[in-house]
Design a protein around this nucleic acid. Sequence first.
DNA 1: CACATTAGTGAACACTTGTACACATCAGTA
DNA 2: TACTGATGTGTACAAGTGTTCACTAATGTG
Lengths: 208, 208
Amino acid sequence: MAERKRPKPGETREKLMNAALTLVGKGRHFASLGIREVTRQAGVVPTSFYRHFRNMDDLGLQLVDELGLVLRRMMREARANVLQADKLIDESVGIFITHAQNNRAFFMFMAQGLAGESRAVQEGIRSEMRFFASELANDLRRLKLADHLSDADLDLTCDLVVRSVAFSLTDILTISPDDEYQEEQVRKRTARFLQLIFVGAANWKSQP
Amino acid sequence: MAERKRPKPGETREKLMNAALTLVGKGRHFASLGIREVTRQAGVVPTSFYRHFRNMDDLGLQLVDELGLVLRRMMREARANVLQADKLIDESVGIFITHAQNNRAFFMFMAQGLAGESRAVQEGIRSEMRFFASELANDLRRLKLADHLSDADLDLTCDLVVRSVAFSLTDILTISPDDEYQEEQVRKRTARFLQLIFVGAANWKSQP
DNA sequence: CACATTAGTGAACACTTGTACACATCAGTA
DNA sequence: TACTGATGTGTACAAGTGTTCACTAATGTG
């Protein structure tokens, strides 16, 4: 008979989420994935899907949560490694790009989700970005790098930084993962974007 | 018998492209659209599709071309209406947002395409954005607003401006089309982003 | 140990999908 | 006027889709 294996609880769930990510990583768009396709990729029978998710949107939402974990891990690493303020931008961009390369599928999913068809996923990703921006603002305050800015203006600046980096994400994801030259170009350009923004912030006069 | 109407040449093609746009405008993702679905929405028999397009990617590519026209129309209007330099940012952002609202489906398609699954569409949209940025650079040069910047730095600035505006696009498209309050918020925030960037550019020192 | 719960399977359903083929109608041209 | 090419329609089919149902094996709890 067919041998019924007893996987650890949550194993199949994870297999399904990984399968979806794998397909996205191969260039497919999340919105075009079907239940059968995902289960096939996961090596699981279609019905198993419903044991863990209502539908594909549900799976997407749970992916957003995991994405949050990846981002937090990244922030922690950045905070641990960025010691001197003058290398702050280059270091941070470097860490970000490295993470993007190491979690390609995840970040592809994120880039897709920003204009995706599930409102909930969209809102989830936006929420992650807001969190990221506010953490960045905290760090800048703590490092005394933005003392002349009002809270609102610091918030504005950090939002713009996060958006710029997020947009660079789409640059990174379109180049081949091992095209080091192009990666270096994106890295440099992103860093210059941020420098430009910070020069703007440094010369910004917060008006009442 | 079924009356066979003789539409003007290209009429069905247009109907199909509009049908796809309509579906995208309703919140669907372009990557998830099928040939039958589009022809159904267009009120045309499925086989007609192949008279005009190879497949959905092909249709997407032709949509990108039309998107280019929309963008050019927008630029022309902006150039005609922006007279005084001090209102430049606010006016331009206003024109952009108005166009985005009036061509919601088109710009949704653009936002989706940036991380879409067709490499060609992706590249097409990027190319439109590059064109847009280079035109912006020309205008700034012509208006003598960027004399202290090297070509490369001006290019960098304009690229960042275009990216920021493009990102604001995703903000506009998630709010309801007639929520004037939120629209005003996005308008203001986008304008401040650009001011921040231009302050940065004004205080930028181009190094050799 | 018995038993409820959980997480897997396979077969079946009613639809939908992309694509192919043969045919019909018009527009323009020789 | 007759031919040709472009564009439309209808039918057909094999393959794929989401979802339901009844069944089974392992797990944890009383």
